[in-house]
């Protein structure tokens, strides 16, 4: 009876660390670009929604619909237009971050206590100064909460980008499944999950650094 293939072949893994590392780096880049671009777009749209309250409904409705389209279907729609490119992958990935990020940025800024805004206005803050010095710092916890969800979601979604040839850890999973080589897909999956957890942890740290005042309250 032939020896059964083990679930993970550590020797193979050791020989191919470079390959796995390369996929991991691709994965990280796809995620970072998606979240960064998504954040910039969301930020602008959130400010528009706050300044012109009537636009908030349509903005969330549009991004909400975008959010519900299955990723595979979105790729299918985009490939004829933008081809099997990074652009195709990023358009889809960015699209999925918008709803969460816009909602959290708007909620964060609108959640700034009324008396703080009134005091800022009464002391002679202009709109921009107030946004930068008062509203954004106070909105950090809610905005970071949105970034955490968006990032973890994106890390998972990036695996799908392998289907249109954009590499990432999805490629390991894909290859592993088609070759029935468990070492590959398990490696891809484990790294993807680990990346999501690490990214989440990084945001928690970032928030702690950005909001020393929140800890002061807890320590009272």
């Amino acid at each position: 009876m032939p020896e059964r293939e083990p679930l993970i072949r550590w020797d193979w893994l050791a020989d191919h660390t470079d390959d796995s590392a390369e996929r991991l780096v691709e994965h990280i880049w796809l995620t970072v670009i998606a979240v960064a671009v998504g954040f910039v777009i969301s930020f602008v749209l959130a400010l528009v929604a706050i300044r012109r309250g009537r636009t908030y409904g349509p903005i969330t409705a549009a991004t909400g619909i975008l959010y519900t389209i299955p990723s595979l279907a979105l790729f299918a729609i985009l490939v004829p237009i933008t081809g099997l490119s990074v652009l195709t992958a990023e358009i889809a990935l960015v699209g999925y971050t918008l709803l969460i990020l816009i909602r959290n940025i708007v909620a964060g800024i609108q959640g700034v206590p009324r008396d703080v805004i009134e005091a800022a206005e009464g002391m002679g803050f202009g709109t921009a100064t107030r946004l930068i010095r008062v509203e954004l710092p106070l909105a950090v916890p809610v905005i970071v909460a949105g970034l955490r969800i968006a990032t973890v979601t994106t890390v998972g979604l990036v695996t799908v980008a392998a289907l249109i040839g954009q590499g990432g850890l999805g490629k390991l999973i894909d290859d592993g499944l088609s070759r029935r080589f468990s070492t590959l897909y398990i490696t891809g999956a484990v790294l993807s999950v680990a990346l999501a957890i690490l990214a989440d942890g990084a945001f928690v740290l970032l928030q702690r650094v950005l909001t020393p005042w929140a800890r002061a309250r807890a320590a009272r």
């Binding site: 008396d115 703080v116 005091a119 009464g122 002391m123 002679g124 803050f125 202009g126 710092p137 005042w213």
Partner: peptide, 30 residues
């Protein structure tokens, strides 16, 4: 209006202190 407000001291009931700034920074705002 902005210049006017900087010339008028303003105190409100709920204080409206900036929770993310230290007391020193709060006093120095204007």
């Amino acid at each position: 209006p902005i210049a006017l407000r900087r010339r008028i001291g303003y105190v409100i009931q709920q204080t409206g202190l900036f929770p993310h700034q230290r007391i020193g920074e709060n006093v120095a705002v204007v």
